[in-house]
Amino acid sequence: MGKEMEVGCARPTGGPVGEKVEPEPAQQTLIPKEVSQMIRVGKKAPDFAAPAYHKGKFVSVKLSEYLGKWVLLCFYPGDFTFV
């Protein structure tokens, strides 16, 4: 029997179980690690395309299609959560 989970604001997720697999030691290298792209105010937002549900239809939305308009882009932890 599965144990009942306490559901908070984030969607419950699974993951690998059992013995922890140690990652292989990284090879010594002089190449600097790729720095992940940071969002900066005053700089362009990275463009993206994503599937979306909009007024009864499944559509594809691309950020650059909204050039000329103001965009409020909101991320949230999951559907059916509170707040």
Binding site: I39, R40, V41, G42, K43, K44, A45, D47, L63, S64, Y66, L67, G68, K69, W70, V71, L72, L73, C74, F75, Y76, P77
Partner: peptide
């Protein structure tokens, strides 16, 4: 909960 304001030029 990230919220970004992006202007008509695509600038954050």
């Amino acid at each position: 909960r990230g919220r970004f304001i992006i202007d008509p030029d695509g600038v954050v």
